[in-house]
Design a protein around this nucleic acid. Structure first.
Lengths: 226, 226
DNA sequence: CTTAATTATAACATATTCATACAAAAATAA
DNA sequence: TTATTTTTGTATGAATATGTTATAATTAAG
């Protein structure tokens, strides 16, 4: 179930919103105190935030800006006047969407549904890196090729991601290792080799032979030839 | 400031994009007519191109392909349907990145930033040194010549790199040695000679005879004659 | 022309690096 | 829990890059 945080000082309105959203299949959380709003909001880890611009003590623009520093969660700003929207836009606080009070609650619902559908879709599709021979989908931890999909484990994804990011450049074993594991944990140098072999086997089974080349004594390199 | 060309037929969307990108520190250019798109795009000499696949009169795939003939500028293809991506990929038009409409603009921004950072980095690391007779690719530890590639080992690369960096100047054996090995390890003076011979043989087999000249009593020098 | 210093070559030895296979441990799912 | 997947560790062997030694070739000076 998708979670929506309601940040609204009008107690009556926010309770109505909560009930309404819950009736429509969302999990709705109300923020009651605004003295620590940004932290409280982020803590909820919501899918969407409904944020009134006029709040006591603090203001919505600030909260919006602060949230954007930490998260890309979609934010719907609720304004009281039409022209507030223009002011907001010119400030570029990072909110994606706006509604003006008083708003038609059905329209708000449609808006929310649309935003959530969109972000879900785009999140699924954005982190795709085209490597000529295949696409690395970082979000899904898969590689795609000829309409076929290969699932990658955590380590496999990380190694491949690092190689892809440095396509055409030799990356040393040390580099990969420090990318894979925290520098604190002392992991056998050979563990990387093992992971490498497994990744290669997996890739070869998928029809991607010799994608990762060993540069003995220097590291590994991703062949960028198409 | 980095320049982004927006190729999008939806007037509203492209204007929004332009404003948004400009607010985020980019120079955004809109393409208004598409009858001469490829030329117009290339003329802008942009750092990145945002290219809608569905355009009137012409189509994005064609434009992409044409651009690729002239330039390696990163291209983000904007598609309307998910499965369009797969079609695109199978054609291999050379676009590096894709977003599906409707897209979250913050995610798009992050993507752009990531792509530009990456390409900037790789430009910086344009570790290809042109030596008239051959190109030394430090990132790949190879030399290239007439579409042929010769792999170098760590030592070979280091020696050649040092010589190339000092092209046309005599470098003493001591210089090369301290560049090759840590000053701590005491390595036989003749070891350098052996490495030198090996490198020379390798180069000669590759069709690069007498590239490294011995200056008896002084060191070695890379012949820069073209 | 000799001789001594320097550099080159060849053959050999060693050390590093990596791949593979298997086992154990840890994480995750059923 | 148990079962399964994923990750990590260890051992072995092969490949190869590099270092060592010995000997030959080259060069400059006397």
């Amino acid at each position: 179930m998708q979670k929506i945080v309601i940040v609204e000082d009008d107690e009556k309105l926010r309770n109505e919103l909560k009930i309404f959203l819950e009736k429509n299949g969302y999990q709705a959380v109300i923020l009651e105190k605004f003295n620590n709003a940004v932290k409280d909001i982020l803590k909820e880890n919501a899918d969407l935030i409904l944020l009134d611009i006029n709040l006591p003590f603090t203001d919505g623009e600030f909260i919006c800006k602060e949230i954007r520093k930490e998260s890309q969660v979609p934010i719907i700003m609720v304004t009281s006047r039409d022209n507030e929207i223009d002011e907001l836009l010119s400030m570029n606080y990072g909110a994606d969407h706006y509604v003006t009070k008083p708003f038609n609650i059905q329209i708000l619902l449609a808006k929310i549904a649309s935003i959530l559908r969109r972000t879900n879709m785009s999140e699924m599709n954005q982190n795709r890196i085209n490597c000529k021979k295949f696409i690395l989908n970082v979000s899904k931890s898969t590689i795609e090729k000829d309409n076929q999909v290969l699932e990658l484990t955590k380590n496999e994804l990380k190694i491949l991601h690092y190689l892809v990011e440095n396509m055409g450049k030799i990356v040393s074993r040390e580099q990969i290792m420090s990318y894979l594991w925290d520098s604190e944990s002392f992991i056998d140098d050979n563990t990387l080799t093992v992971n490498m072999t497994r990744l290669r086997n997996k890739l070869e089974e998928f029809g991607l032979k010799d994608v990762i080349e060993t540069k003995r004594g220097q590291g590994y390199i991703l062949n960028e030839i198409s």
